[in-house]
Amino acid sequence: MIKASKLAYEYIRRDEEGNVEGIVRALDGVDLDIKSGDFVAILGHNGSGKSTIAKEINAILEPTEGVLFVNNYDTSKEENIWDIRQSAGMVFQNPDNQLVASVVEEDVAFGPENLGVPTDEIILRVAEALEKVGMTAYRNSSPNHLSGGQKQRIAIAGILAMKPKCIVLDEPTAMLDPNGRKEVISTIHELNKKEGITILLITHYMDEVVGCDKVIVMDNGKVVMQGTPREIFSRPDEIKKHKLDLPQVTELADELAKEGVDMPKGILSIDEFVEAFTSRYAGK
């Protein structure tokens, strides 16, 4: 679905007078291979290059070096832009700044309208998309009256109505409260499972990564770690080195192991912890 080879992106930083201050290499030799139907998380602190990847995938930025293919379209070719954006939809961080219309259903219709879809089909697609994110009841509301989590679900519906193969979400939960975060994360998991849509979730919240197929950790524009959540979480010291957090249970298990308590590596959930702990220390 998404394939990158030695992808690099550089931009020139200028000071106030417009003099060149230096060249920033936001992406540096990134190789990616994301298969259709995968749920992949990209982790990294701010400035690690993870948002640049999202913009590359959506052909908002053009690669400086290397190649990037999205749904077999080369992103460096101008004529592919609209096909790329249709097949890999994008959801941004700020829920307010990506909704265009002042009525929910009209906003969801915005994408298909741009694609020139006939009226009857737009109506069908909008109804279907709102159904999938569970927002049908709000179709005639104003986005201004919705919660952050609901607005993000509308943004997702707006992308779904374009019938994409893949959705790229650039820190979709950073501005939400815990309930909003849960709403959004469970919505995208469901889309991945039921509709088979490839999901690329860019985030810095470790706990959102737990149910993913694959995790990619970025730092300094490079891919520094890659693997299943369990593989990644088994290397807690490395994660901390890249300025990321661990879920509390993983951290606790790791701390205990360091103190000589027999705990396995890469614990992801409360249940796993309880299971591991009681099987070893029951009755003591």
Partner: peptide, 28 residues
């Protein structure tokens, strides 16, 4: 906090803890 749920779950399984924990250090 997640450790609060964890310590509660452990107690339910019969692990003799003095009470729930609220921080990782405490749980440790």
């Amino acid at each position: 906090p997640q450790v609060t749920y964890l310590t509660a779950a452990l107690m339910k399984k019969g692990v003799p803890l003095p009470g729930i924990a609220t921080t990782v250090e405490e749980a440790k």
